[in-house]
């Protein structure tokens, strides 16, 4: 049967639509998180018992919690921490993982073999459990969470990049660069890396989501980010008991997370064309 023109157009359009809506969501949430790193309208820890369970007002758009703290400021601050942790995780996990994947995939040999066997092993542990092991050794806290999650994320990135590099390694364009005298490093970073960027971006977007969810989960359990650092996960576990009195302190952090995960998820779908 002959292909009909309309079919292909439609698919492409839909993908772009994912990318655009994801991009908008991600931009909004990222700006929100970045602002939270540097500025909050009120001190996120300042308690004012006269404002206990204050309803939503213009001055306190998300209301106040059980200690009269401004929920909006706390969400901002917590998002900032979350962003920091997720970004740090990606820099460690994504960065090292990508490098590892590039080199082992390209050069092969025993390091590749060792890495793959190690990978098989790590996959047996759910992400968050692995991070919990590290936390139980390192102790909780913002930077330890970054370190733990970062290490945990290395294998998945390494594996993904490796499999992509292996596909490109044997392609003709790589051979011709080789013939023209390009060095291995040049081939890896100037030729192969740009070719796998679609997959990589898509994986980074998903990785960001996973980092955020893992951090929130750990902080929710009380063994992630510790006071005085604000964290969305911990906020929610503290406020859970007061959900009817102050719904804002559970719902809004949740909403921020949902929007962010939704945004990055759509972005990832849009990237993986």
């Amino acid at each position: 049967m002959r292909p009909k023109k309309g079919d292909f157009k439609k698919v492409k359009k839909e993908k772009n639509y994912y990318f655009i809506s994801g991009g908008i969501l991600v931009t909004v949430v990222t700006v929100f998180m970045l602002v939270g790193l540097f500025y909050t309208p009120y001190d996120s820890e300042a308690m004012d018992l006269s404002l206990k369970f204050a309803p939503f007002t213009l001055a306190h758009p998300f209301g106040c919690d059980q200690f009269g703290r401004d929920v909006f400021s706390r969400v901002l601050k917590g998002s900032g921490t979350t962003f920091l942790v997720a970004a740090g995780t990606l820099i460690i996990g994504g960065g090292l993982g990508t490098l590892l994947g590039l080199f082992t995939g390209y050069f092969g040999g025993w390091p590749d073999e060792v890495l793959m066997r190690f990978n098989d092993l790590v996959v047996a542990f759910p992400n968050i459990l692995l991070a919990l092991i590290f936390i139980s050794i390192l102790g909780p806290g913002k930077y330890n969470v970054i370190l733990a999650l970062g290490i945990v994320f290395i294998p998945s990135f390494a594996r993904l990049v490796r499999s992509e590099v292996i596909v490109h390694r044997d392609m003709d364009y790589v051979k011709s660069v080789r013939l023209m005298g390009g060095s291995h490093l040049r081939i890896l970073f100037v030729h192969i890396l740009p070719n796998i960027k679609g997959t990589l971006f898509s994986a980074l977007a998903i990785g960001f989501n996973n980092a955020v969810l893992s951090e929130a989960g750990m902080s929710y359990l009380g063994i992630g980010v510790q006071p005085p650092d604000a964290s969305i996960g911990r906020m929610m576990s503290e406020a859970q008991a007061y959900i009817f009195a102050a719904p804002g302190s559970v719902l809004f952090p949740g909403l921020v997370m949902i929007l962010m995960v939704l945004g990055f998820g759509l972005l990832s779908d849009g990237c993986s064309v």
Partner: peptide, 22 residues
């Protein structure tokens, strides 16, 4: 699907507690 996948597990738990429990 897109929405459900975006909800963190423990937040889903809290929502379910609210709706079905409280």
């Amino acid at each position: 699907n897109q929405f459900v996948m975006a909800v963190p597990g423990f937040f889903m738990g809290i929502l379910i507690t609210c709706v079905f429990g409280l």
